[in-house]
Nucleic acid binder design. Structure first.
Lengths: 139, 139
DNA sequence: GTAGGTGCAAAGTATTTGCATATAT
DNA sequence: ATATATGCAAATACTTTGCACCTAC
């Protein structure tokens, strides 16, 4: 129907699979939480020595457009994480600065809920701040 | 006790009161929600024609250090809002892009609550996404 | 073989800083 | 009078883009 091996909209071809892309995608897949760009670059370079920063940015944009990852902004820092991990939120440790993924959700707001003033809620995002297990134990 | 008109730590003097600072502080005080820097500049220029962008940034930093305002990062954009408005959250309209302050809080997490995994929660931040009253009415 | 991808370096944004002038105290 | 603040322009930091070479298909 579309001529190629998989169907992409007319005049558009499927992105090619390259070592750089595969590694960057996997780095995010196995990450313990959302990662910053320099961190992604470092982890990628461990497996693909010469990768350039531009490729990381280009790939992050590509993966974001595809929907397989998405950016999270936390305290002014832009982090990226793999999508499709289900509904979750983030915990930012005020002691060590690391960000963790939490699958517990402290909020229950069905889509369509109307807030005082007439705000129709479609989605929510929660960030918790405090001490991560390591830092809490160390305190 | 400290020699000056107000007490500041030794070797530090009180910031001076200037037209620029007063106006920038007031702009944030009367704002309907957190504002982006270009927006702050525009609103300030309406009252102090020649203000420079650098002064806006310097003043935002000063006010932040003083604690009278604080930055909020929302979808990669850095916004500033006056502090001391009590516990509140933000609503970001997915249609018009405006950000509003909401005083309703959908979360109840007493400080010290421990989340699964051992995360000790000290604070939380919530952002709701959806249609603002204007856009909901227009839909 | 060819379209698409990569690395490098140059170009854009956003924010910060240096310096001469202006201003609050 | 003098230290501090301002405005402009240069400097920084982060991200995007142009281009010649390389690689997946």
């Amino acid at each position: 129907m579309c001529g190629g091996r998989s169907c992409y909209p007319a005049e558009m071809s499927a992105p090619r699979s390259t070592k750089q892309r595969d590694v960057i995608a996997r780095v995010l897949d196995v990450a313990e939480g959302p990662l910053a760009v320099p961190d992604i670059l470092t982890r990628t370079q461990a497996q693909v020595p010469g990768v350039g920063l531009a490729t990381v940015y280009r790939t992050l944009k590509l993966l974001s457009d595809q929907g397989s990852i998405h950016p999270v902004t936390l305290d002014g820092e832009t982090l990226y994480e793999a999508s499709g991990r289900g509904h979750h939120h983030h915990f930012s440790c005020t002691a060590c600065g690391r960000v963790f993924t939490l699958h517990a959700c402290p909020v229950s707001i069905p889509a369509g809920t109307v807030y005082p003033g007439g705000f129709v809620v479609e989605a929510h995002e929660v960030t918790l701040y405090g001490r991560c297990p390591d830092c809490a134990a160390r305190a």
